[in-house]
Structure formats: structure tokens, C-alpha cells
Simulated scan of single mutants.
Amino acid sequence: MKNSRRLFLKSACAVVVAASGYTIAKSSTESVEIDGKKYALVHDETKCIGCDACSIACREVNQVPEGVSRLKIEREGPYGEYPDQYFRFTRKSCQQCEDTPCVKVCPTGAAYKDPETGIVSVDSWKCVGCQYCIAACPYQVRFINPVTHAADKCDFCKETRLKEGKQPACVSACPTQALTFGDLKDPESNIVKVLKSAPNYRSKTELGTRPKVFRIASREGEVTL
């Protein structure tokens, strides 16, 4: 039944795109006013040890199939000369953009920004697997889930942990507290305090996407050989 509904949406989408592609592209760029929270994440690279506890927890909690991943920790290095060598660990996941290229190109509304949380999500029921969002994502973090056959990615555990009033799985699993999650609209939140306490950066800000995943840059020597 679910596949039949998706097939119907896919066929209908193809007809509409053929008839009025410009109309879809134009309407999909309309922004959504966020009246609720504005959830964001900080990855402190100075604390990250590359243990992958976060990605393992993400897979288990969100039932992510083998072969694909919502979250990866990429290892760079070693840098420097022995014995003063070090590695850098960076997080690769959805950047939860405020200006969302993936939402703009989605012809069915499957990719959307939740007005209550500001979280960019995917409605798998509406997704027809056209992969427009995958092509549009400048961070290359979206994928087709081999089980649902819909686009998938990190959504800060919106449908799992957040529904239970808990922190995202990756945040809870991190043994070094390298991850901080919270509401940017709350001036007393831990994430706002962390962002005010240390210099930070975001990826590809020159594209105007305004990502809500912040990074505290790693320093030489936090992991040595």
C-alpha cells in the first residue's frame, strides 16, 4: 500500500513537472516562518577523539540500514612530524540549513523545515525518490534509504529521541561531551553559552545556506601518536 501511494505520487509529480516545471520551482522556494525553537548542534573538534560512538548510537536509535549513514566522523591526518603528530576529526551530517536548497527543489513537499523546531526533515511517505534533494545538497549528506526507498539524513533524532524529550542519540553517546545540542533562541541554553565561550565556524557559509551545525576548530596536539 505504501509503495502504491509513492508510485502514485511519483507519476503525478512527473506529469506536473512536465506541464509546469517553472511553477513547482517557484513555489518550492517560499520560505517557512519559524515561530518555535531553532535547534542547532555544536561539534567541539578539540574534544572529539574519533571513537564513532555517536555514529553507532545514531544507527541503532534511528534504525539506519547497513551501507548508508546519517552521521560519519571523518579522520584527517596525521599532521606534523613524529612524535608530535595529531589527527583532526570532523563530523559529516546534515547541516540543518536555514536557507534550504533541498527543500527548494523537492517537487512533492517531502523535504521540509519543521516550523516548530526549525529542523529540516523528510516525510518518507511523500518522497518519490527523484533524488533532486540529494543533487541540491552542497554538503552531500543525503542518501536513499534502501529499506524505505526514500531520501534520508540526520534530523537530530526528531522522530525518536526528541519525541521522548531526550537529547539526540549522538549527543548522549559522546564520551567526551564533544557535542552540544539546544535551542539558539534560548539565551540561557547550553548551546548559546558554548557558542559565546569559544571561536567557532560553519561549513560553506559562502553559499548562503546558514547552517545550524557549528564547529569549534581542532588544535594541534589533542590526539598524539
Rank of each mutant, 00 (worst) to 15 (best):
S203G: 01
V171D: 02
A198M: 10
K196A: 15
E206A: 08
T205A: 09
G208K: 01
R210W: 07
K185M: 06
C174M: 11
N190V: 11
G208H: 05
L207V: 12
C170L: 13
P199L: 01
A173I: 10
K193A: 00
T205Q: 12
K196Y: 09
I191D: 00
P187A: 10
A178L: 11
S172P: 03
P175W: 07
G208N: 07
S172L: 10
L179S: 00
L207K: 13
K196F: 05
I191S: 00
K185D: 08
L195R: 05
E206H: 06
V194L: 00
P199E: 13
V194F: 00
L184S: 07
P187V: 06
R210M: 12
N190S: 15
V194Q: 05
Q177L: 14
T205V: 14
N190I: 02
G182W: 00
Y201C: 00
A173D: 11
K204M: 10
R202S: 10
T209G: 06
P187F: 01
L184Y: 07
N190M: 09
N190R: 10
A169E: 08
R210K: 15
S189A: 14
V192R: 09
K196G: 13
P175F: 10
Q177N: 15
K204T: 02
D183H: 07
K204E: 08
R202K: 14
E188D: 15
T176K: 09
S189Q: 05
K196C: 02
P175V: 02
D186P: 04
L207T: 11
K204N: 11
A169L: 05
C174Q: 12
D183W: 11
Y201R: 05
C170M: 14
D183F: 06
S203L: 11
G182K: 00
Q177A: 13
F181R: 04
T180D: 01
T176R: 09
A178T: 09
A198H: 13
F181G: 13
T209P: 03
G208W: 08
K196N: 15
K185R: 13
T209E: 09
Y201W: 15
A173Y: 14
S172H: 08
S172A: 15
P175N: 08
L195Y: 10
C170V: 04
E188Q: 14
E206I: 04
Q177H: 15
V194T: 15
L179I: 12
A178V: 12
Y201G: 03
R210Q: 13
P168A: 05
S203I: 14
F181S: 08
Y201M: 03
K204G: 01
Q177E: 14
S197V: 02
E206R: 03
S189R: 03
S203E: 13
N200Y: 15
P187Q: 05
A178P: 07
L179F: 14
C170T: 03
E188I: 02
N200M: 03
A178H: 11
S189M: 04
A178Y: 15
P175G: 13
N190Q: 15
T209D: 12
I191N: 00
K185V: 02
R210Y: 14
I191H: 00
A198F: 10
L207R: 13
D186R: 04
T180R: 01
Y201Q: 04
L184P: 02
S203W: 10
L184E: 09
V192L: 03
T209N: 15
S203V: 12
C174S: 10
K185C: 03
L179A: 01
R202L: 04
A169F: 12
F181M: 12
D186Y: 08
L179R: 00
E188C: 03
